[in-house]
C-alpha cells in the first residue's frame, strides 16, 4: 500500500532524490577518472560519493515511506548505482579493445589519459 510523503519530509524527499542522481554521477565520474589516471584519491572520492549516495537512498526511503515490497527499490538503487559504472567500464574497455592494443595500456586495465588513439 502507498503511504504518501509527510509534510515535514517534503523538502527531504526532493533533496535526497536529487542527491541520489548527483552522487551517482559523481561516483561514476571519479570511478572512471581513477581507472584512467590510476590516482588513489579519485577512487577514494568515488567511494565517498557512493557512501553519500547510499545515505541519500536511505533518507529518500525514509522520507517516502518506502516500506514492505517498496524496499526492493532501495536495494535495486544501491546495487544498480554501485555496479553500473563497473559494468560500463568493462564495456568501454571491451569496445575499444582494438584501440588499446595499439596504445600503451597501463597496469590492471588502466588507460593512460594522454594516450593518442
Amino acid at each position: 500500500m502507498l503511504s504518501p510523503v509527510d509534510l515535514d519530509n517534503f523538502f527531504l524527499a526532493f533533496f535526497s532524490a536529487a542527491l541520489v542522481i548527483l552522487m551517482g554521477a559523481a561516483y561514476a565520474l571519479f570511478f572512471t577518472l581513477a581507472k584512467l589516471n590510476g590516482r588513489r584519491l579519485f577512487m577514494v572520492t568515488a567511494y565517498l560519493s557512493y557512501g553519500l549516495l547510499a545515505v541519500s537512498v536511505l533518507l529518500l526511503a525514509e522520507a517516502l515511506n518506502l516500506r514492505g515490497y517498496w524496499h526492493i527499490i532501495v536495494w535495486l538503487m544501491l546495487a544498480g548505482y554501485l555496479l553500473a559504472p563497473h559494468g560500463i567500464w568493462h564495456l568501454c574497455c571491451g569496445t575499444h579493445v582494438a584501440a588499446h592494443e595499439t596504445a600503451n595500456a597501463g597496469d590492471n586495465g588502466r588507460i593512460p589519459a594522454k594516450t593518442e588513439v
Binding site: 577518472l33 548505482y81 560500463i88 596504445a103
Partner: peptide, 27 residues
C-alpha cells in the same frame, strides 16, 4: 509499483553515460 520500480531504474543509463563520456574524453 511498476511505474515506481522502472522509473527508479531510468536514470541508471544516464549515469552509465557519464562513465563512457569521461572514458572517451580521457583516452
Amino acid at each position: 509499483s511498476i511505474g515506481g520500480f522502472f522509473s527508479a531504474l531510468e536514470p541508471i543509463p544516464l549515469v552509465a553515460m557519464v562513465v563512457h563520456a569521461v572514458y572517451d574524453s580521457g583516452v
